[in-house]
């Protein structure tokens, strides 16, 4: 008794949010009728400062928060009108741990499969694959309260994938995990995205969004302030910052016509404006006796844009309020 999922065509957006509005019981307005489309196969970043409305949006998509108005479609299936066909297409990794601390990883993922109608035998087979892939198989029979923070994060990812969703939403999936584990999770997410799972990611690590995502929306004060490709957004930057490892006495040297900041005994930052030549800048440094031993792009490009965009919106709203 198995039916093939109807919304499997790639032409249907993975997620279509239309005029979505949320006003909480206390009158707090969290979403101001936002529109958002995420295409099938995308790796999409949803960013925003704390309190911007990200968690409310994900809560509504998870059906844990009730919408005030608007609609959400997952692969063409209305989440609130057709929940039984829309929900199986969706997997959610929440920001906070929300599993039973007394249950084991194997119990948690097989039970989750059961809630989606996956029989126990099949659920165990899938759980073994997922837990092995996420290095949790050895811990499968331990109480989940005994797992480390990184293991708990991976357990929530395994749980969200056990019913094989087409759209995976991850809310801060790498919060509090070490760099090595974060990189391995990135690899895993790239892997499942390449295999066809659409991914929406919220993160406070903007480098993470820049590394992983092709498209991006920034939400602030309940509105989508930017919705574009990562490349287009980054191209808005008119300054690139480079970190230089140098040899030479930086303290005695000022470099004319260059924006530089000394950040260490043998390290400085160099801002290059759009259209300016980096070769000329390096030559100018060399003429001042500063030899550049190594150079890398400072990974704060998205961060700068993020701060600029959300600050601009805050100013505008403050002006509106004042008016």
């Amino acid at each position: 008794m198995v039916t093939t999922p109807t919304p499997a065509t790639n032409s249907v957006p993975a997620l279509q949010v239309s005029s979505l509005e949320k006003i909480y019981d206390g009158g707090q307005r969290a979403l101001n009728g936002i529109n958002l489309t995420v295409q099938h196969g995308d790796f999409f970043a949803l960013l925003g400062p704390n309190g911007a409305g990200k968690s409310t949006l994900i809560g509504i998509i998870s059906t844990l928060v009730r919408k005030t108005a608007g609609s959400v479609q997952v692969y063409g299936q209305d989440l609130h009108q057709q929940p039984h066909s829309a929900k199986p297409l969706l997997g959610v990794v929440p920001q906070e741990f929300n599993f039973n601390n007394f249950e084991t990883p194997l119990q948690i993922v097989t039970q989750q499969a059961g809630y989606y109608g996956v029989p126990y035998g099949e659920a165990k087979r899938r759980a073994e694959k997922l837990l092995k892939r996420l290095d949790l198989w050895e811990k499968r029979d331990d109480a989940s309260r005994l797992l480390s923070g990184g293991m708990r994060r991976r357990l929530m990812i395994a749980r969200a994938l056990i019913h094989q969703p087409r759209l995976l939403i991850l809310d801060e999936p790498t919060a509090g995990v070490d760099i090595e584990l974060r990189r391995s999770l990135w690899d895993f997410l790239r892997e499942i995205n390449a295999a066809g799972t659409t991914i929406i990611l919220t993160t406070h690590y903007l480098e993470e969004a820049e590394q992983l995502c092709r498209n991006i929306a920034i939400i602030d004060s309940g509105d989508i302030v930017t919705n574009t490709t990562m490349r287009a957004l980054l191209s808005q930057l008119d300054i690139e910052t480079y970190v230089l490892n140098t040899a030479g006495d930086l303290t005695k040297t000022s470099v004319a016509n260059l924006e530089t900041r000394q950040t260490g005994d043998d390290e400085m930052e160099l801002d290059i404006r759009k259209g300016d030549s980096i070769s000329e800048a390096l030559a100018a440094l060399q003429s001042q006796g500063i030899e550049v031993m190594n150079l890398r792009n400072k990974a704060n490009r998205l961060e700068e844009l993020f701060v600029r965009l959300t600050r601009r919106e805050n100013k505008a709203s403050q002006q509106d309020a004042a008016a």
């Binding site: 039916t3 989606y116 109608g117 694959k129 087409r166 066809g196």
Partner: peptide
């Protein structure tokens, strides 16, 4: 592990989902 196996969902009927 092949990730393909994790992304090709087959959707059980509502009655079966409820029973399981």
């Amino acid at each position: 592990m092949s990730t393909e196996t994790l992304t090709t969902a087959a959707m059980p009927s509502q009655a079966r989902t409820n029973w399981v």
